[in-house]
Design a protein around this nucleic acid. Structure first.
Lengths: 180, 180
DNA sequence: CGCCATCCATACAGTTCTGTATGGAGACGA
DNA sequence: TCGTCTCCATACAGAACTGTATGGATGGCG
């Protein structure tokens, strides 16, 4: 039946709740109210809260790594790949990203998920710099700083919805030490 | 008597607990156990949990801004001020900083405290760059990126205890666009 | 000494959440 | 049609935390 829930439905709602209200809201009772069912459904699909949290984190790892690729593949203009990536990630404030990182501050499972995503993204940026002609050693350090800057930006509350200022992107590209 | 507690004692323990176990551990009952008293003491010093949280955050604002100044005043060597600051803040992993920022992700009061500290620190770095000869407009943007990078570093779990690698500091100074 | 203020213990009621046990309703195949 | 499997409701016990009410202990001070 269509009005029956799957484990995936619970996980999807978990990501929405995570982005909206943070990891402290990932509890069976409130979630069941939002889903319009009782906790009987929750405990049928998941052994306990920890199993549910693990499922939510596993799903986040997927979407967090999907986005970085999808965003680049749909690449529109004649910008360099680095500039395109920077313009993209410094545009919107990723509520989900903030929520998971807040979670990771004091939860081992969330920390592992974040670290795995960080490693993947970092090597992606480093490869981008190397492809742009930056020596490998410098590329590694600069990619690390650029990624840290993204994280700091994401977690700051200053991030406005629209386009990032051109001066910021220009400065980041200059710091990266690539032409264009 | 010396074995009596003050509100300050509760706040100090709050900062320690915050750094160790995160904001979810800032609860009257567990804290009282650690302090070796009952919740009767807690509710005598504070009207409720919200008032206690506000007191902890107010104290954090003080120490978070004290450190940046104290660290620079005790300046040892012949390095430039910027390099000295970078070496300092990229050295240790600030557990308290991480905890408060994790808290701020979904709590309005914590967010206000973080924003106030960010504004103060950011202007400090910008002034440093301007004093080093960077034009005001560029200094503002570069200070923002450097501070974001620090935040990203602090929240990453990669931070090792010892000295930061010289290559990292060199890259940061280069990105800042100052000589030295 | 007696009084009062400070600080804390204890007990109580109430809320929220967890996890389990049990059973019921609906779809679906043999 | 009769199980059977899937999904969910309900009820229960228990843990953890909040806030209040009340009284006890201690020390300072008149």
């Amino acid at each position: 039946m269509a009005d029956q829930l799957s484990a995936q439905d619970w996980v999807d709602q978990g990501l929405r709740t995570l982005a909206r209200d943070g990891f402290t809201a990932l509890k069976a009772d409130p979630l069941a109210k939002v889903m319009g069912v009782s906790r009987g459904s929750f405990y049928w699909h998941f052994a306990d809260i920890a199993a549910y949290h693990a499922a939510v984190l596993a799903r986040w790892r997927e979407v967090a790594l999907d986005n970085i690729i999808a965003d680049m593949e749909q690449a529109p203009p004649q910008d360099t790949p680095l500039r395109r990536l920077l313009r993209r990630v410094f545009a919107a404030r990723p509520a989900l990203e903030v929520a998971v990182r807040s979670w990771a501050a004091h939860d081992a499972a969330a920390r592992r998920a974040v670290q795995a995503v960080d490693r993947r993204r970092l090597s992606y940026v480093a490869d981008l710099l190397i492809a742009a002609g930056v020596p490998a050693a410098a590329a590694q350090t600069r990619a690390q700083v650029l990624y840290w800057a993204f994280l700091g930006f994401a977690l700051s509350e200053k991030a406005a919805p629209g386009e990032p200022p051109a001066a910021l992107i220009d400065e980041l590209v200059r710091m990266a030490g690539v032409r264009g």
